[in-house]
Simulated scan of single mutants.
Amino acid sequence: MAGNRTTTTHFAQLARAMGAAGADEDRLMLAVEAALDLVDGCTQAGITINREGDCQTLAATSDVMSSVNSWQNELAQGPCHEPDRTEEIVVISDLARDERWQTWGRRVHDEHGLRSTISLLVYSTKGTYGTLSLYADRPGAFDGDDLATAQAIAGHLAVSLAASREIDGLQLALSSRTVIGQAEGIIMERLSLDADQALAYLKRVSSQTNRKLVALALSIVETRELPEA
């Protein structure tokens, strides 16, 4: 079980570290490292994303996760193989005897000596970001406390990823608005138009040329040339 090591302090530190991380890749690594450190019995951990039936390893504590996922692809079996998985939690107490994905489970056991796993969806109200999978080298390694700890790690990661992507979206929107404003200024100066007329000009040319408004504005700013309207 997770024991006394897993405290509120650990999760506060994890939340701060994820918030301060510069990229999503760093947040993913923080999550798998936390799983290895905070969940007793966990010997391997990884984040997997399923892209149209192809399991891809986004972060892992070792190369073992890459082979585990490659077998899910090869055999079309495993907890991460279904692209539209809805099960929040999958628990396999003994991979060597699992009946649901027999061939995959047996290979994971035979090749890497892993016996049990828990796999959790990493999701928030903003979307699903993959699965967090933990493995152990003995059967029945994970108890209720371990599962709760893994869920907390997955939850922290989901919230951090959602916040990061929302900020990225706001920054992109702000950048787009800035470029459009700069293009409007050039149009106003060149064609002696007011702000509303300059924006109307941009929208008209965008529609006529089938170019996105931001791409058109960026071209005007970079070349200082106006397309024909």
Results as ranks from 00 to 15, higher is better:
Gly181Ser: 10
Leu199Phe: 11
Thr178Glu: 07
Lys126Cys: 05
Ala136Trp: 06
His156Lys: 00
Ala163Met: 03
Leu172Gly: 06
Ser164Lys: 04
Ala162Tyr: 01
Phe142Pro: 01
Lys212Glu: 14
Asp196His: 10
Asp196Gly: 09
Ala173Val: 04
Tyr201Thr: 10
Asn210Gln: 09
Leu132Gln: 04
Ser175Lys: 07
Asp168Asn: 07
Leu202Ala: 00
Ser119Asn: 04
Ser175Ile: 01
Tyr201Arg: 02
Gly144Tyr: 04
Ala183Trp: 05
Leu147Asp: 02
Arg138Trp: 15
Val205Ser: 10
Val179Ala: 14
Ser175Val: 01
Ala198Thr: 04
Asp196Pro: 09
Lys212Met: 09
Ala195Arg: 12
Gln151Ser: 03
Arg204Met: 06
Ala173Thr: 12
Ser175Glu: 13
Ser175Arg: 12
Ser207Ala: 14
Leu202Tyr: 03
Leu170Ser: 15
Thr149Ala: 13
Phe142Asp: 01
Gln208His: 14
Ala173Phe: 08
Ala195Ile: 04
Lys203Tyr: 10
Gly130Asp: 06
Leu199Ser: 07
Gly127Ala: 04
Asp137Cys: 11
Ala162Asp: 13
Val205Thr: 15
Gly140Ile: 05
Ile153Leu: 01
Leu161Tyr: 03
Gln151His: 02
Gln151Lys: 13
Leu172Glu: 14
Phe142Gln: 09
Met188His: 02
Ile186Lys: 02
Lys203Cys: 07
Leu174Pro: 01
Lys212Gly: 15
Tyr201Ser: 03
Leu134Tyr: 03
Ala141Phe: 07
Leu120Val: 10
Asp146Lys: 02
Gly140Leu: 05
Gly181Met: 00
Ala150Ser: 10
Ala150Lys: 05
Ile153Gly: 00
Val159Leu: 05
Ser164Tyr: 12
Tyr201Lys: 06
Thr131Arg: 15
Lys126Arg: 10
Gly169Glu: 15
Ser124His: 01
Leu157Pro: 11
Ala183Asn: 08
Ser119Ala: 07
Gln208Asp: 12
Gly144Cys: 00
Ser176Pro: 06
Asp143Gln: 12
Arg138Ala: 15
Leu134Ile: 15
Ala173Trp: 06
His156Gly: 01
Glu189Phe: 10
Glu189Asn: 12
Leu161His: 00
Asp143Ala: 11
Leu161Thr: 00
Thr125Met: 14
Phe142Gly: 02
Ser192Met: 04
Ala173Glu: 14
Thr128Phe: 09
Gly185Ser: 08
Ser192Gln: 08
Ala183Pro: 01
Ser160Lys: 00
Glu166Met: 08
Val159Pro: 02
Ser124Cys: 01
Arg190Trp: 08
Asn210His: 15
Leu191Asp: 00
Asp146Phe: 09
Thr125Phe: 10
Gly127Glu: 12
Ser176Phe: 11
Leu193Asn: 02
Ile186Leu: 14
Arg177Gln: 14
Gln151Tyr: 08
Ile187Met: 09
Gln171Ser: 06
Ala136Ile: 06
Ser164Leu: 14
Leu134Asp: 04
Gln182Asp: 13
Gly130Asn: 14
Arg190Pro: 05
Gln151Glu: 07
Ser164Glu: 13
